[in-house]
Design a protein around this nucleic acid. Structure first.
Length: 511
RNA sequence: GCUCGGUUCGUCUAAGUGGUUAGGAUAGCAGACUUUCAAUCUGCUGAUGCGGGUUCGAUUCCCGUACCGAGUACCA
Protein backbone atom coordinates (compact mmCIF):
# COMPACT_ATOMS: atom_id res chain seq x y z
CA UNK A 1 0.00 0.00 0.00
CA UNK A 2 1.60 3.19 -1.17
CA UNK A 3 1.34 6.47 0.64
CA UNK A 4 -0.94 9.08 -0.84
CA UNK A 5 1.10 11.50 -2.88
CA UNK A 6 1.22 14.95 -1.33
CA UNK A 7 3.17 17.73 -2.99
CA UNK A 8 3.40 21.42 -2.32
CA UNK A 9 4.19 24.66 -4.02
CA UNK A 10 5.85 26.96 -1.53
CA UNK A 11 6.49 30.41 -2.91
CA UNK A 12 7.77 33.36 -1.02
CA UNK A 13 5.50 36.40 -1.47
CA UNK A 14 8.35 38.75 -2.33
CA UNK A 15 7.00 39.81 -5.70
CA UNK A 16 5.20 38.48 -8.75
CA UNK A 17 5.66 34.85 -9.63
CA UNK A 18 7.55 34.49 -12.89
CA UNK A 19 7.08 31.76 -15.46
CA UNK A 20 9.72 29.57 -13.87
CA UNK A 21 7.67 29.57 -10.69
CA UNK A 22 4.50 28.84 -12.61
CA UNK A 23 6.17 25.89 -14.26
CA UNK A 24 7.29 24.53 -10.89
CA UNK A 25 3.73 24.84 -9.64
CA UNK A 26 2.45 23.21 -12.81
CA UNK A 27 4.75 20.19 -12.54
CA UNK A 28 3.72 19.75 -8.92
CA UNK A 29 0.08 20.00 -9.90
CA UNK A 30 0.43 17.52 -12.76
CA UNK A 31 2.26 15.08 -10.54
CA UNK A 32 -0.37 15.35 -7.80
CA UNK A 33 -3.27 14.87 -10.19
CA UNK A 34 -1.59 12.06 -12.06
CA UNK A 35 -1.13 10.18 -8.79
CA UNK A 36 -4.51 11.16 -7.41
CA UNK A 37 -2.76 12.93 -4.59
CA UNK A 38 -3.06 16.33 -2.98
CA UNK A 39 -1.53 19.62 -3.93
CA UNK A 40 -0.82 22.18 -1.24
CA UNK A 41 -0.07 25.89 -1.38
CA UNK A 42 2.14 27.01 1.44
CA UNK A 43 3.29 30.58 1.79
CA UNK A 44 6.87 30.94 2.95
CA UNK A 45 6.91 34.39 4.44
CA UNK A 46 9.53 34.00 7.13
CA UNK A 47 11.47 36.95 5.79
CA UNK A 48 9.22 39.74 6.93
CA UNK A 49 11.51 42.41 5.49
CA UNK A 50 11.05 41.25 1.95
CA UNK A 51 7.28 40.89 1.91
CA UNK A 52 5.62 42.68 -0.97
CA UNK A 53 2.07 43.85 -0.76
CA UNK A 54 -0.25 42.00 -3.10
CA UNK A 55 2.24 39.29 -3.97
CA UNK A 56 0.38 36.48 -2.22
CA UNK A 57 -2.87 37.42 -3.89
CA UNK A 58 -1.04 37.70 -7.21
CA UNK A 59 0.39 34.19 -6.89
CA UNK A 60 -2.99 32.67 -6.15
CA UNK A 61 -4.85 34.46 -8.89
CA UNK A 62 -2.15 33.86 -11.50
CA UNK A 63 -2.14 30.14 -10.87
CA UNK A 64 -5.91 30.10 -10.92
CA UNK A 65 -5.84 31.79 -14.31
CA UNK A 66 -3.52 29.07 -15.56
CA UNK A 67 -5.93 26.43 -14.29
CA UNK A 68 -3.68 25.31 -11.45
CA UNK A 69 -5.74 24.68 -8.34
CA UNK A 70 -4.97 23.50 -4.85
CA UNK A 71 -6.50 20.96 -2.51
CA UNK A 72 -5.14 22.66 0.58
CA UNK A 73 -3.53 25.99 1.25
CA UNK A 74 -3.70 29.48 2.66
CA UNK A 75 -6.71 30.38 0.57
CA UNK A 76 -8.68 27.12 0.86
CA UNK A 77 -7.69 25.80 4.28
CA UNK A 78 -7.09 22.17 5.14
CA UNK A 79 -6.38 19.96 8.10
CA UNK A 80 -2.70 20.91 8.28
CA UNK A 81 -3.53 24.57 8.88
CA UNK A 82 -2.11 27.15 9.08
CA UNK A 83 -0.40 27.19 5.68
CA UNK A 84 1.41 30.43 6.19
CA UNK A 85 4.78 30.11 7.88
CA UNK A 86 4.55 33.39 9.76
CA UNK A 87 1.57 31.88 11.58
CA UNK A 88 3.48 28.76 12.54
CA UNK A 89 6.32 30.26 14.56
CA UNK A 90 5.40 28.36 17.76
CA UNK A 91 5.68 25.09 15.88
CA UNK A 92 9.20 25.82 14.73
CA UNK A 93 10.29 26.73 18.25
CA UNK A 94 9.46 23.26 19.40
CA UNK A 95 11.67 21.72 16.75
CA UNK A 96 14.51 24.13 17.24
CA UNK A 97 14.58 23.12 20.90
CA UNK A 98 14.60 19.51 19.92
CA UNK A 99 17.69 20.14 17.78
CA UNK A 100 19.31 22.20 20.50
CA UNK A 101 18.73 19.51 23.13
CA UNK A 102 20.07 16.81 20.89
CA UNK A 103 23.23 18.80 20.25
CA UNK A 104 22.52 19.24 16.54
CA UNK A 105 22.18 22.98 16.85
CA UNK A 106 23.67 25.73 18.98
CA UNK A 107 23.20 29.38 19.89
CA UNK A 108 25.38 31.92 18.14
CA UNK A 109 25.78 35.48 19.35
CA UNK A 110 27.91 36.94 16.59
CA UNK A 111 26.40 40.13 15.24
CA UNK A 112 26.06 40.64 11.50
CA UNK A 113 28.76 43.31 11.77
CA UNK A 114 31.15 40.92 13.47
CA UNK A 115 30.57 38.31 10.80
CA UNK A 116 31.09 40.85 8.04
CA UNK A 117 34.39 41.74 9.60
CA UNK A 118 35.48 38.12 9.76
CA UNK A 119 34.49 37.67 6.14
CA UNK A 120 36.57 40.67 5.17
CA UNK A 121 39.57 39.37 7.05
CA UNK A 122 39.30 36.08 5.23
CA UNK A 123 38.97 37.82 1.93
CA UNK A 124 42.18 39.73 2.55
CA UNK A 125 43.86 36.37 2.97
CA UNK A 126 42.11 35.29 -0.25
CA UNK A 127 40.11 32.70 1.61
CA UNK A 128 36.40 32.22 1.93
CA UNK A 129 34.97 32.32 5.39
CA UNK A 130 32.61 29.56 6.34
CA UNK A 131 30.91 29.16 9.71
CA UNK A 132 31.71 25.49 10.26
CA UNK A 133 33.55 22.91 12.36
CA UNK A 134 36.88 24.58 11.61
CA UNK A 135 35.87 28.10 12.58
CA UNK A 136 33.02 27.84 15.04
CA UNK A 137 35.26 27.52 18.08
CA UNK A 138 36.78 30.91 17.35
CA UNK A 139 33.41 32.62 17.21
CA UNK A 140 30.91 33.58 19.86
CA UNK A 141 28.49 30.72 20.34
CA UNK A 142 27.28 28.20 22.85
CA UNK A 143 29.97 25.74 21.78
CA UNK A 144 32.88 28.09 22.25
CA UNK A 145 31.63 29.94 25.33
CA UNK A 146 31.16 28.52 28.79
CA UNK A 147 27.72 27.51 30.03
CA UNK A 148 27.67 30.45 32.42
CA UNK A 149 28.53 32.95 29.72
CA UNK A 150 25.81 31.59 27.47
CA UNK A 151 23.28 31.68 30.26
CA UNK A 152 24.17 35.24 31.08
CA UNK A 153 23.98 36.40 27.46
CA UNK A 154 20.54 34.86 27.07
CA UNK A 155 19.29 36.30 30.34
CA UNK A 156 20.47 39.72 29.24
CA UNK A 157 18.35 39.31 26.11
CA UNK A 158 21.35 39.40 23.83
CA UNK A 159 20.15 38.77 20.28
CA UNK A 160 21.13 35.35 19.05
CA UNK A 161 20.54 32.97 16.20
CA UNK A 162 20.47 29.20 16.24
CA UNK A 163 22.82 27.45 13.86
CA UNK A 164 22.89 23.85 12.75
CA UNK A 165 25.93 21.94 13.86
CA UNK A 166 27.18 20.32 10.70
CA UNK A 167 29.24 17.19 11.34
CA UNK A 168 32.89 17.60 10.47
CA UNK A 169 33.18 15.02 7.75
CA UNK A 170 30.33 12.83 6.74
CA UNK A 171 29.13 11.85 3.31
CA UNK A 172 25.61 13.00 2.57
CA UNK A 173 23.64 11.47 -0.27
CA UNK A 174 20.74 13.27 -1.86
CA UNK A 175 18.62 11.03 -3.97
CA UNK A 176 17.20 13.10 -6.74
CA UNK A 177 14.49 11.73 -9.02
CA UNK A 178 15.85 13.70 -11.95
CA UNK A 179 19.60 13.64 -11.33
CA UNK A 180 20.18 10.42 -9.46
CA UNK A 181 22.44 10.30 -6.43
CA UNK A 182 24.23 13.50 -5.54
CA UNK A 183 27.00 13.01 -2.99
CA UNK A 184 28.50 15.75 -0.91
CA UNK A 185 30.87 15.84 2.02
CA UNK A 186 29.48 17.62 5.05
CA UNK A 187 32.82 19.42 5.42
CA UNK A 188 31.76 21.60 2.51
CA UNK A 189 28.56 22.67 4.23
CA UNK A 190 28.38 25.56 6.66
CA UNK A 191 26.55 25.90 9.96
CA UNK A 192 23.52 27.56 8.44
CA UNK A 193 21.29 29.76 10.53
CA UNK A 194 18.09 27.86 11.28
CA UNK A 195 16.48 30.39 13.54
CA UNK A 196 16.89 34.12 13.16
CA UNK A 197 17.18 36.73 15.89
CA UNK A 198 13.71 37.99 14.96
CA UNK A 199 12.19 34.78 16.30
CA UNK A 200 11.36 33.26 12.94
CA UNK A 201 13.05 30.30 11.28
CA UNK A 202 14.95 30.49 8.02
CA UNK A 203 13.78 28.68 4.92
CA UNK A 204 15.79 25.56 5.68
CA UNK A 205 14.22 24.76 9.02
CA UNK A 206 10.70 25.91 8.22
CA UNK A 207 10.69 24.03 4.97
CA UNK A 208 11.83 20.75 6.45
CA UNK A 209 9.53 20.98 9.48
CA UNK A 210 6.51 21.88 7.36
CA UNK A 211 7.14 19.24 4.73
CA UNK A 212 7.42 16.70 7.52
CA UNK A 213 4.34 17.89 9.39
CA UNK A 214 2.27 18.27 6.26
CA UNK A 215 3.30 14.78 5.19
CA UNK A 216 4.76 15.88 1.90
CA UNK A 217 5.92 12.88 -0.12
CA UNK A 218 7.68 14.60 -3.02
CA UNK A 219 9.53 17.88 -3.08
CA UNK A 220 9.56 19.21 -6.63
CA UNK A 221 11.37 22.53 -6.75
CA UNK A 222 13.87 24.58 -8.74
CA UNK A 223 17.46 23.59 -9.27
CA UNK A 224 18.64 26.55 -7.20
CA UNK A 225 17.81 24.39 -4.16
CA UNK A 226 20.05 21.52 -5.10
CA UNK A 227 23.09 22.91 -3.25
CA UNK A 228 21.15 23.15 0.00
CA UNK A 229 19.42 19.80 -0.38
CA UNK A 230 22.17 18.00 1.59
CA UNK A 231 21.43 20.29 4.54
CA UNK A 232 17.77 19.38 4.30
CA UNK A 233 18.62 15.69 4.24
CA UNK A 234 20.73 16.17 7.33
CA UNK A 235 17.94 18.04 9.06
CA UNK A 236 15.52 15.17 8.50
CA UNK A 237 18.05 12.91 10.12
CA UNK A 238 18.61 15.29 13.06
CA UNK A 239 14.88 15.58 13.62
CA UNK A 240 14.61 11.79 13.67
CA UNK A 241 12.27 11.69 10.75
CA UNK A 242 14.60 10.44 8.04
CA UNK A 243 12.16 7.67 7.22
CA UNK A 244 9.55 10.28 6.43
CA UNK A 245 11.87 12.26 4.22
CA UNK A 246 10.20 13.13 0.90
CA UNK A 247 11.69 12.24 -2.45
CA UNK A 248 13.41 15.17 -4.16
CA UNK A 249 13.21 16.36 -7.74
CA UNK A 250 15.19 19.44 -8.71
CA UNK A 251 13.89 21.06 -11.86
CA UNK A 252 16.21 22.62 -14.46
CA UNK A 253 16.11 26.36 -14.70
CA UNK A 254 14.53 28.49 -17.39
CA UNK A 255 17.24 30.60 -19.00
CA UNK A 256 17.29 33.89 -20.88
CA UNK A 257 16.52 33.64 -24.63
CA UNK A 258 19.82 35.29 -25.49
CA UNK A 259 23.05 35.48 -23.58
CA UNK A 260 23.69 33.88 -20.24
CA UNK A 261 21.92 33.46 -16.97
CA UNK A 262 18.53 32.58 -15.67
CA UNK A 263 15.46 34.36 -16.87
CA UNK A 264 14.74 37.54 -14.97
CA UNK A 265 12.05 40.17 -15.06
CA UNK A 266 14.30 42.53 -17.02
CA UNK A 267 14.61 40.15 -19.95
CA UNK A 268 10.96 40.46 -20.76
CA UNK A 269 10.90 44.19 -21.13
CA UNK A 270 14.16 44.11 -23.02
CA UNK A 271 13.03 41.59 -25.60
CA UNK A 272 9.36 42.40 -25.65
CA UNK A 273 7.80 39.30 -24.14
CA UNK A 274 6.16 38.81 -20.75
CA UNK A 275 7.90 36.91 -17.97
CA UNK A 276 4.89 37.05 -15.67
CA UNK A 277 1.59 35.21 -15.98
CA UNK A 278 -0.43 38.33 -15.26
CA UNK A 279 0.35 41.99 -15.35
CA UNK A 280 2.07 43.22 -12.21
CA UNK A 281 2.27 46.69 -10.84
CA UNK A 282 5.01 47.21 -8.33
CA UNK A 283 3.41 48.74 -5.25
CA UNK A 284 6.48 50.86 -4.53
CA UNK A 285 7.94 51.90 -7.86
CA UNK A 286 4.56 51.73 -9.64
CA UNK A 287 6.40 50.10 -12.49
CA UNK A 288 4.21 47.87 -14.61
CA UNK A 289 5.41 44.52 -15.95
CA UNK A 290 3.41 42.89 -18.70
CA UNK A 291 1.70 39.55 -18.31
CA UNK A 292 0.75 36.65 -20.56
CA UNK A 293 -2.89 37.13 -19.75
CA UNK A 294 -3.00 40.75 -20.81
CA UNK A 295 -0.84 40.04 -23.84
CA UNK A 296 -3.65 37.89 -25.15
CA UNK A 297 -2.40 34.41 -24.41
CA UNK A 298 -4.94 31.73 -23.71
CA UNK A 299 -4.21 30.07 -20.36
CA UNK A 300 -4.28 26.68 -22.10
CA UNK A 301 -1.59 27.78 -24.55
CA UNK A 302 0.49 29.29 -21.76
CA UNK A 303 0.32 26.09 -19.72
CA UNK A 304 1.00 23.91 -22.75
CA UNK A 305 4.06 25.96 -23.61
CA UNK A 306 5.41 25.84 -20.06
CA UNK A 307 4.78 22.12 -19.70
CA UNK A 308 7.00 21.41 -22.69
CA UNK A 309 9.81 23.64 -21.48
CA UNK A 310 11.83 20.95 -19.77
CA UNK A 311 9.50 18.00 -20.15
CA UNK A 312 8.21 15.96 -23.08
CA UNK A 313 5.86 13.07 -23.48
CA UNK A 314 8.27 11.01 -25.54
CA UNK A 315 5.97 11.26 -28.54
CA UNK A 316 5.86 13.88 -31.26
CA UNK A 317 2.67 15.39 -29.96
CA UNK A 318 3.05 19.00 -28.87
CA UNK A 319 -0.45 20.20 -28.19
CA UNK A 320 -1.86 18.88 -24.94
CA UNK A 321 -4.93 19.66 -22.92
CA UNK A 322 -4.44 19.80 -19.16
CA UNK A 323 -6.10 16.38 -18.80
CA UNK A 324 -3.66 14.90 -21.29
CA UNK A 325 -0.71 16.46 -19.47
CA UNK A 326 -1.94 14.94 -16.23
CA UNK A 327 -2.33 11.58 -17.87
CA UNK A 328 1.12 11.58 -19.47
CA UNK A 329 3.23 13.46 -16.95
CA UNK A 330 6.13 11.73 -15.29
CA UNK A 331 9.12 13.06 -13.39
CA UNK A 332 11.38 10.64 -15.25
CA UNK A 333 10.79 12.53 -18.47
CA UNK A 334 11.90 15.87 -17.08
CA UNK A 335 15.16 17.11 -18.58
CA UNK A 336 18.31 17.68 -16.63
CA UNK A 337 19.57 20.72 -18.44
CA UNK A 338 18.30 24.28 -18.35
CA UNK A 339 16.12 25.49 -21.20
CA UNK A 340 16.52 28.81 -22.97
CA UNK A 341 13.16 30.40 -23.25
CA UNK A 342 11.90 30.97 -26.80
CA UNK A 343 9.25 33.71 -27.02
CA UNK A 344 8.57 32.84 -30.69
CA UNK A 345 7.49 29.34 -29.89
CA UNK A 346 5.11 30.54 -27.23
CA UNK A 347 3.34 32.58 -29.92
CA UNK A 348 3.04 29.47 -32.02
CA UNK A 349 1.33 27.66 -29.15
CA UNK A 350 -1.19 30.46 -28.88
CA UNK A 351 -1.86 30.29 -32.60
CA UNK A 352 -2.61 26.60 -32.33
CA UNK A 353 -5.19 27.23 -29.64
CA UNK A 354 -6.67 30.20 -31.46
CA UNK A 355 -7.54 27.92 -34.33
CA UNK A 356 -9.13 25.30 -32.17
CA UNK A 357 -11.27 27.63 -30.11
CA UNK A 358 -14.99 27.92 -30.55
CA UNK A 359 -15.80 30.85 -32.82
CA UNK A 360 -18.47 32.26 -30.52
CA UNK A 361 -16.05 32.22 -27.63
CA UNK A 362 -13.48 34.09 -29.70
CA UNK A 363 -16.08 36.58 -30.83
CA UNK A 364 -16.94 37.45 -27.25
CA UNK A 365 -13.28 38.17 -26.57
CA UNK A 366 -13.02 40.23 -29.75
CA UNK A 367 -16.14 42.20 -28.80
CA UNK A 368 -14.42 43.13 -25.54
CA UNK A 369 -11.45 44.46 -27.44
CA UNK A 370 -13.68 46.48 -29.76
CA UNK A 371 -15.50 47.87 -26.79
CA UNK A 372 -12.24 49.03 -25.25
CA UNK A 373 -11.46 50.90 -28.47
CA UNK A 374 -14.97 52.40 -28.51
CA UNK A 375 -15.83 50.53 -31.65
CA UNK A 376 -19.48 49.59 -31.96
CA UNK A 377 -20.16 46.33 -33.80
CA UNK A 378 -22.89 43.76 -33.85
CA UNK A 379 -22.06 40.29 -32.67
CA UNK A 380 -22.76 38.94 -36.16
CA UNK A 381 -20.29 41.26 -37.77
CA UNK A 382 -17.66 40.59 -35.12
CA UNK A 383 -18.13 36.89 -35.69
CA UNK A 384 -17.59 37.31 -39.42
CA UNK A 385 -14.43 39.29 -38.77
CA UNK A 386 -13.30 36.60 -36.38
CA UNK A 387 -13.76 33.77 -38.82
CA UNK A 388 -12.04 35.74 -41.56
CA UNK A 389 -8.99 36.47 -39.47
CA UNK A 390 -8.53 33.64 -37.04
CA UNK A 391 -6.33 31.59 -39.37
CA UNK A 392 -4.16 34.58 -40.15
CA UNK A 393 -3.06 35.67 -36.69
CA UNK A 394 -1.56 34.47 -33.41
CA UNK A 395 -3.63 36.61 -31.05
CA UNK A 396 -7.15 37.99 -30.94
CA UNK A 397 -5.67 41.41 -30.37
CA UNK A 398 -4.17 41.13 -33.85
CA UNK A 399 -7.65 40.66 -35.27
CA UNK A 400 -8.70 43.92 -33.70
CA UNK A 401 -5.57 45.68 -34.96
CA UNK A 402 -5.74 44.30 -38.47
CA UNK A 403 -9.43 44.93 -38.93
CA UNK A 404 -9.31 48.55 -37.82
CA UNK A 405 -9.61 49.80 -41.38
CA UNK A 406 -13.13 48.41 -41.47
CA UNK A 407 -14.22 51.08 -39.00
CA UNK A 408 -12.18 54.03 -40.12
CA UNK A 409 -12.08 55.09 -43.70
CA UNK A 410 -8.49 55.36 -44.95
CA UNK A 411 -7.48 58.97 -45.40
CA UNK A 412 -4.25 58.39 -47.23
CA UNK A 413 -3.67 55.65 -49.73
CA UNK A 414 -0.16 54.30 -49.93
CA UNK A 415 1.50 56.45 -52.62
CA UNK A 416 4.22 53.96 -53.43
CA UNK A 417 1.60 51.42 -54.28
CA UNK A 418 -0.30 53.92 -56.40
CA UNK A 419 2.82 54.59 -58.40
CA UNK A 420 3.55 50.93 -58.86
CA UNK A 421 0.07 49.54 -59.45
CA UNK A 422 -2.05 52.37 -60.85
CA UNK A 423 -2.03 53.52 -64.46
CA UNK A 424 -3.66 56.44 -66.21
CA UNK A 425 -6.81 54.44 -66.86
CA UNK A 426 -7.17 53.15 -63.30
CA UNK A 427 -9.65 55.78 -62.18
CA UNK A 428 -11.71 55.17 -65.29
CA UNK A 429 -11.82 51.45 -64.56
CA UNK A 430 -12.89 52.03 -60.97
CA UNK A 431 -15.68 54.34 -62.18
CA UNK A 432 -16.84 51.64 -64.56
CA UNK A 433 -16.83 49.20 -61.66
CA UNK A 434 -18.97 51.53 -59.60
CA UNK A 435 -21.44 51.74 -62.42
CA UNK A 436 -21.55 47.98 -62.58
CA UNK A 437 -22.13 47.36 -58.89
CA UNK A 438 -24.13 50.47 -58.09
CA UNK A 439 -27.45 48.81 -58.69
CA UNK A 440 -26.78 45.60 -56.78
CA UNK A 441 -29.34 44.61 -54.16
CA UNK A 442 -27.28 41.62 -53.13
CA UNK A 443 -24.07 42.57 -51.29
CA UNK A 444 -22.98 39.12 -50.20
CA UNK A 445 -19.34 38.24 -50.68
CA UNK A 446 -20.14 35.20 -52.82
CA UNK A 447 -22.43 37.06 -55.14
CA UNK A 448 -20.03 39.97 -55.50
CA UNK A 449 -17.25 37.55 -56.30
CA UNK A 450 -19.14 35.89 -59.11
CA UNK A 451 -20.60 38.99 -60.53
CA UNK A 452 -17.43 41.08 -60.51
CA UNK A 453 -15.39 38.25 -61.96
CA UNK A 454 -17.90 37.82 -64.77
CA UNK A 455 -17.77 41.55 -65.41
CA UNK A 456 -13.97 41.45 -65.60
CA UNK A 457 -14.11 38.63 -68.13
CA UNK A 458 -16.74 40.25 -70.30
CA UNK A 459 -14.78 43.49 -70.37
CA UNK A 460 -11.54 41.66 -71.02
CA UNK A 461 -9.95 43.16 -67.95
CA UNK A 462 -7.19 41.52 -65.93
CA UNK A 463 -7.82 41.05 -62.23
CA UNK A 464 -4.70 42.93 -61.28
CA UNK A 465 -5.59 46.19 -62.96
CA UNK A 466 -8.91 46.47 -61.20
CA UNK A 467 -8.75 44.45 -58.01
CA UNK A 468 -5.50 45.90 -56.74
CA UNK A 469 -6.67 49.53 -56.97
CA UNK A 470 -10.02 48.45 -55.54
CA UNK A 471 -8.32 46.95 -52.51
CA UNK A 472 -6.21 50.04 -52.20
CA UNK A 473 -9.29 52.26 -52.18
CA UNK A 474 -11.05 50.09 -49.59
CA UNK A 475 -8.15 49.35 -47.26
CA UNK A 476 -5.58 52.05 -47.96
CA UNK A 477 -2.87 49.47 -48.56
CA UNK A 478 -2.43 46.05 -50.10
CA UNK A 479 -3.28 43.91 -47.13
CA UNK A 480 -6.08 41.93 -45.65
CA UNK A 481 -8.56 39.21 -46.45
CA UNK A 482 -10.34 38.67 -49.75
CA UNK A 483 -11.67 41.90 -51.31
CA UNK A 484 -15.20 40.52 -51.63
CA UNK A 485 -15.33 39.76 -47.93
CA UNK A 486 -14.16 43.27 -47.22
CA UNK A 487 -16.87 44.69 -49.47
CA UNK A 488 -19.52 42.69 -47.66
CA UNK A 489 -18.26 43.73 -44.24
CA UNK A 490 -18.11 47.39 -45.21
CA UNK A 491 -21.56 47.36 -46.69
CA UNK A 492 -22.66 48.86 -49.95
CA UNK A 493 -22.79 52.55 -49.01
CA UNK A 494 -19.42 52.60 -47.30
CA UNK A 495 -17.81 50.55 -50.05
CA UNK A 496 -19.02 52.89 -52.78
CA UNK A 497 -17.99 55.94 -50.78
CA UNK A 498 -14.49 54.54 -50.29
CA UNK A 499 -14.11 53.71 -53.95
CA UNK A 500 -15.16 57.27 -54.88
CA UNK A 501 -12.69 58.73 -52.41
CA UNK A 502 -10.06 56.40 -53.75
CA UNK A 503 -10.67 57.54 -57.30
CA UNK A 504 -10.16 61.16 -56.26
CA UNK A 505 -7.02 60.34 -54.34
CA UNK A 506 -5.50 58.30 -57.14
CA UNK A 507 -6.39 60.98 -59.72
CA UNK A 508 -4.55 63.63 -57.69
CA UNK A 509 -1.56 61.39 -57.03
CA UNK A 510 -1.10 60.40 -60.64
CA UNK A 511 -1.20 63.92 -62.06
C1' G B 1 37.94 30.92 -5.76
C1' C B 2 35.30 26.61 -3.85
C1' U B 3 31.03 23.05 -4.27
C1' C B 4 27.17 20.92 -7.01
C1' G B 5 24.66 20.37 -11.67
C1' G B 6 24.57 20.48 -16.99
C1' U B 7 26.35 20.13 -22.48
C1' U B 8 22.29 16.84 -29.50
C1' C B 9 20.35 21.77 -35.38
C1' G B 10 19.86 29.39 -33.77
C1' U B 11 15.88 27.59 -29.97
C1' C B 12 12.74 23.45 -27.46
C1' U B 13 13.67 18.43 -27.84
C1' A B 14 13.61 12.46 -29.58
C1' A B 15 16.85 8.36 -30.13
C1' G B 16 14.05 3.10 -22.66
C1' U B 17 19.36 -0.61 -20.61
C1' G B 18 25.81 1.20 -26.98
C1' G B 19 24.14 -0.62 -34.00
C1' U B 20 18.99 5.19 -36.76
C1' U B 21 20.43 8.22 -43.60
C1' A B 22 20.76 11.32 -35.64
C1' G B 23 13.87 12.05 -35.87
C1' G B 24 10.12 16.02 -34.68
C1' A B 25 8.76 21.08 -33.58
C1' U B 26 10.00 26.19 -33.91
C1' A B 27 12.74 29.93 -36.29
C1' G B 28 15.34 30.98 -41.05
C1' C B 29 15.60 30.38 -46.47
C1' A B 30 13.32 28.96 -51.29
C1' G B 31 9.24 27.50 -54.30
C1' A B 32 3.86 26.73 -54.96
C1' C B 33 -0.93 28.91 -54.11
C1' U B 34 -3.24 33.97 -54.05
C1' U B 35 -5.82 40.14 -57.42
C1' U B 36 -2.70 41.89 -51.81
C1' C B 37 -0.72 40.59 -47.03
C1' A B 38 -0.85 36.63 -44.09
C1' A B 39 -2.10 31.66 -43.48
C1' U B 40 -1.38 27.01 -45.86
C1' C B 41 1.39 23.29 -48.72
C1' U B 42 6.20 21.50 -50.61
C1' G B 43 11.33 21.58 -50.32
C1' C B 44 16.07 23.21 -48.25
C1' U B 45 19.77 24.78 -44.68
C1' G B 46 21.11 23.21 -39.87
C1' A B 47 23.36 19.49 -34.14
C1' U B 48 25.86 15.03 -30.79
C1' G B 49 31.54 21.11 -27.15
C1' C B 50 36.72 19.20 -27.49
C1' G B 51 40.53 15.27 -26.56
C1' G B 52 41.52 10.50 -25.17
C1' G B 53 40.06 5.64 -24.09
C1' U B 54 36.67 0.74 -23.71
C1' U B 55 34.35 -1.69 -28.09
C1' C B 56 33.64 -4.85 -34.31
C1' G B 57 30.71 -0.40 -33.36
C1' A B 58 29.68 5.27 -28.85
C1' U B 59 24.97 10.76 -28.85
C1' U B 60 24.68 6.61 -25.33
C1' C B 61 29.89 3.80 -20.95
C1' C B 62 34.84 5.68 -18.54
C1' C B 63 38.71 9.59 -17.90
C1' G B 64 40.40 14.40 -18.88
C1' U B 65 39.41 19.29 -20.62
C1' A B 66 36.53 23.50 -22.16
C1' C B 67 32.25 26.07 -21.76
C1' C B 68 27.37 27.16 -19.49
C1' G B 69 24.32 27.37 -15.10
C1' A B 70 23.26 27.37 -9.88
C1' G B 71 24.82 27.87 -4.87
C1' U B 72 28.26 29.93 -1.57
C1' A B 73 23.21 35.68 3.52
C1' C B 74 20.13 36.32 10.44
C1' C B 75 16.83 35.75 1.31
C1' A B 76 13.87 32.34 -0.30
Amino acid sequence: MKKTVRVRFAPSPTGPLHIGGVRTALYNYLFAKKNKGQFILRIEDTDQKRLVEGAEEYIISSLAWAGITFDEGVHVGGKYSPYKQSERSEIYKKYIHQLLNAGHAYYAFDTPEELDQVRNEFQLKKETFQYDAKTRMFLRNSLSLSKEEVKELIEKNTPYVVRVRIPEDEEIVVNDLIRGEVRVSSSLLDDKVLFKSDGLPTYHLANVVDDYLMEITHVIRGEEWLPSAPLHVLLYKFLDCAEKMPAFAHLPLILKPEGNGKLSKRDGDKHGFPVFPKEWKDPVTKEISSGYKESGYFPEAFVNMLALLGWNSGTEQEIFKMEELIELFSIERINKSGAKFDPEKSKWFNQQYLRKKDIKELTILLMDLFKKKNIVVTFEKAEKICSLYRERVNFISEIEEQSRFLFTRPIHLDKNIIQKKCKSNTTELLEKLINHIFGFDNWQSGFLHESINAWLVSNELSAGQVMLPLRLALVGELKGPEVFDILELLGKDESLARIKNGIEFIRKSIQ
